[in-house]
Deep mutational scan, measured.
Amino acid sequence: NARWTTEEQLLAVQAIRKYGRDFQAISDVIGNKSVVQVKNFFVNYRRRFNIDEVLQEWEAEHGK
Rank of each mutant, 00 (worst) to 15 (best):
F42R: 02
Y19N: 02
D22A: 02
K64I: 12
N1G: 10
Q14E: 15
W4C: 06
A60T: 09
E61L: 08
R3P: 08
R3Y: 08
G20K: 02
K39H: 05
A15K: 02
G31T: 05
V36P: 14
G31M: 06
N1V: 05
G31S: 07
A12N: 06
R17V: 05
K64R: 11
K39E: 11
N1A: 10
I16P: 00
Y19F: 12
T6A: 14
Y19I: 01
V36S: 14
H62N: 14
L55Q: 06
A2F: 15
Q14F: 04
T6E: 10
V29W: 12
I16H: 02
H62V: 11
N44H: 09
V54C: 08
R17W: 01
R17M: 05
I16W: 07
A12L: 08
V13C: 07
S27G: 06
V29T: 09
A25K: 15
D52Y: 04
K33N: 06
V13S: 04
K39D: 03
E53F: 06
G31N: 04
I51Q: 08
V38H: 01
N32M: 02
L55E: 11
V13M: 15
A60N: 08
A60Y: 13
R47K: 15
V54S: 06
T5H: 00
K18L: 10
V13G: 04
V36E: 15
K64F: 09
G31W: 02
L11A: 10
Q56P: 03
Q56R: 14
K64D: 07
G63S: 10
Y19V: 03
E7R: 11
A2S: 14
T5F: 03
A15M: 11
Q56E: 14
N1P: 14
D52T: 05
R46Y: 07
R48H: 14
R21S: 12
R46Q: 13
L11V: 14
Q56D: 06
R21C: 10
L55M: 09
H62M: 10
W58D: 09
I30G: 00
E8I: 08
Y19T: 04
I16Q: 00
E61H: 10
Q37G: 04
Q9N: 04
V13P: 03
E7H: 08
V43G: 09
A60Q: 15
E61S: 12
V29P: 00
I16A: 07
L11G: 03
Q14H: 11
I51Y: 09
E61M: 09
E53R: 13
V36L: 14
T5I: 00
L55D: 04
S34Q: 03
Q56A: 15
K64L: 11
V36G: 13
D22Y: 12
G31V: 12
N44S: 12
Q24T: 10
I51N: 10
F41S: 01
E61K: 09
V54W: 07
F41P: 04
A2E: 15
N40V: 04
I26N: 00
K18H: 05
N1L: 10
W58T: 06
V29Y: 15
N40R: 12
H62L: 09
R47D: 14
N1I: 14
V13R: 05
T5Q: 01
K18T: 08
N1R: 05
V36Y: 13
V54G: 05
R48A: 12
D52I: 03
I16V: 02
V38L: 01
G20D: 05
G31I: 01
R46V: 07
Q37E: 15
Q24V: 09
R21D: 12
A2H: 13
W58P: 07
I26H: 01
R47P: 08
V38E: 01
A12T: 14
Q37M: 05
N32P: 02
Q37S: 05
N44I: 15
N44R: 14
R46H: 06
E53I: 12
R3Q: 12
R3I: 15
Q9H: 07
Q24C: 01
K33R: 08
F42Q: 01
Q37D: 15
A15C: 12
Q37N: 05
R46N: 08
K64S: 11
Q24L: 04
